[in-house]
Nucleic acid binder design. Structure first.
Lengths: 162, 162
DNA sequence: TATTGTTATACTCTATAACTATA
DNA sequence: TATAGTTATAGAGTATAACAATA
């Protein structure tokens, strides 16, 4: 992703890229958020390495383990994904044999999600790497800053009436 | 995107979704960031409405206007997109006649990007809506909080050595 | 009738690799 | 040889609509 650095050693304040004029783009909160999320997601994928699991896939495994038998729909709405989107995602995790769908006995429409043994094992490995990754990014902040940042981010999450 | 709200009017603190156990997932900075970015992006699309422009498309138009004749590559690296990814994006903006590619006279390999008149007009409309949208999300914060938030987010952006 | 999951479909985003043309 | 752009292709993400089974 990163090729090589460009000659000069000046610390680029905003425009890392050859003196492009940003014209206030970088003053937009939406822009800052998108950039930050992009950087963190890239670091996440690197940290997960050969486990090859995206943030969302991790979130699903994580929630299924913490809520054995949870339905696709619950996970979907917790993670703000469409039913059809959830299908694809769960199909994928199921084809990697990380979880199973089991038809519910109380309500035949529901499919209960459970981790397989491989899924449990995977999640243990994932947790290790997530911990390292979180340590890396949280290391950029003092504990007060971190608390502030998370608090401020959480305010955005409830915007649309989550 | 939003279908209809579910009966109850309680303000959900974290788990909007029927008491799911999060098991620390929501303590991860990466998770908070992704959620916040998702919410803001959704609000962005709503704010842009019939203009139908994503954050990235907006960023490209914005930078092209501020840097007339800039090359695809410069924009791409400023926005951390692959050359091929940039192609698709610019193709799309060009087919909507919002910008033009012009072969550079100094370096025949380069394509200079310029906004069309329609592109300029579009960008004016976009700016209006972006302003409203930014006012909406920034309205969640005091000016000190906002400054802190942006400052803290910017620290993440430079993580991988951008 | 409403809900859960499913399938089919389509569109977008992203990246890799091979290619062209310029330098 | 290296760079900017291009094309083909493929995979993943997301969403809409129609449908089946169940409630």
């Amino acid at each position: 992703m990163q090729t090589q650095r460009k000659g000069t050693d000046r610390r680029p304040e905003q425009a890392a890229t050859a003196g492009l004029e940003f014209a206030g783009l970088d003053k937009l909160l939406g822009y800052d958020l998108r950039r930050a999320q992009g950087a963190v997601h890239r670091a996440y994928l690197v940290a997960l390495g050969e486990l090859k699991l995206t943030q969302k896939h991790t979130a699903v495994l994580w929630l299924v383990e913490a809520n054995p038998g949870v339905s696709q729909g619950s996970i979907g709405s917790a993670l703000e994904m469409d039913r059809a989107t959830m299908m694809v995602l769960v199909d994928r995790l199921e084809s990697r044999e990380l979880l199973r769908r089991v038809r519910s006995k109380e309500d035949g429409r529901r499919r209960e999600l459970h981790l397989t043994n491989a899924g449990q094992r995977m999640l243990r490995g994932v947790r290790e790497r997530v911990t390292r990754h979180e340590r890396q990014i949280k290391g950029l902040y003092s504990s007060i800053e971190l608390q502030q940042l998370q608090h401020l981010l959480q305010r955005l999450q409830n915007m649309d009436g989550g």
